Simulated scan of single mutants.
Amino acid sequence: MATVRGCNLPDDLFYNVDNNVWARREGDGTLTIGMTAYACSLAGEIVSYTPKKVGKSIDQNKSVTTVESGKWVGPVKAPVAGEILAINDAVAAKPGSINADPYASGWLVKLKPSNWEGESAGLVTGGAVATAFEAKMNADGFGGC
């Protein structure tokens, strides 16, 4: 796992660095999607989670859910296009779990990708994760998680 400025960034995930979202490719080809620890730190404690409906098709870089904290309201964008298969009911009941465990119990939606092979090439994974997020944090003037 990469750690950049105190933010954990598991290197087995796929990241859209610009949008601060991650995707985990499951064995059946579906994706689990969530916010990075960096995004959670920027937002502060999440108090509201409003996902799109199951069955909705989402284009790449379009919102799969809206989250709200005490200082921010905004979309969490899909790293690739696809259809929403599931939302996280546990997060709906306790939105702060996104902050507490963004890479496991704080996942946001499950997605069936429509063009994984074509769109995943733009995502960052493995050893490139730390370098990509260090550059983003520098550009954003981010002090750390």
Rank of each mutant, 00 (worst) to 15 (best):
M1S: 15
M1F: 10
M1E: 12
V4C: 09
V4M: 07
R5I: 04
G6Q: 10
G6V: 03
N8T: 12
N8P: 01
L9E: 03
L9G: 06
L9T: 08
P10D: 01
D12W: 15
L13Y: 14
F14V: 04
N16H: 10
D18Y: 06
W22L: 10
A23E: 00
A23D: 02
R24I: 12
R25F: 07
R25W: 04
E26C: 10
G27L: 05
G29S: 15
G29F: 09
L31E: 10
L31I: 12
L31A: 12
T32M: 15
T32A: 11
G34D: 13
G34A: 07
A39K: 08
A39S: 12
S41Y: 10
G44N: 08
G44M: 11
G44A: 09
I46N: 13
V47S: 01
T50E: 10
K52T: 02
K52Y: 06
G55L: 10
G55C: 09
K56Q: 13
K56I: 05
K56L: 08
S57R: 12
S57L: 08
I58W: 00
I58P: 01
D59H: 13
K62T: 06
V64P: 14
V64N: 13
V64S: 11
T65K: 03
T66H: 09
V67M: 01
V67E: 00
S69H: 04
S69V: 02
K71D: 14
W72S: 08
W72K: 04
W72T: 07
W72P: 11
G74Y: 03
P75M: 02
P75W: 01
V76K: 00
A81P: 05
E83M: 13
E83H: 01
I84T: 00
L85N: 04
A86H: 08
I87Q: 09
I87P: 03
N88W: 10
N88G: 10
A90I: 12
A92L: 11
A93M: 06
P95W: 07
P95C: 06
G96V: 00
G96Y: 01
I98H: 04
I98Y: 06
I98S: 03
I98R: 03
N99V: 08
N99E: 05
A100Y: 03
A100W: 02
A100P: 04
D101R: 08
P102R: 04
P102W: 03
P102K: 06
A104Y: 05
S105P: 00
G106E: 04
G106Q: 03
G106K: 09
W107I: 02
L108F: 09
L108P: 08
L111H: 14
L111N: 10
P113N: 13
P113F: 13
P113Y: 13
N115K: 08
W116D: 04
W116M: 03
G118E: 08
E119S: 11
S120D: 05
L123E: 04
V124E: 10
G126L: 12
T131G: 15
T131Y: 07
T131P: 02
A132W: 07
A132I: 14
A135K: 09
N138E: 15
N138C: 12
D140H: 00
F142T: 07
G143P: 07
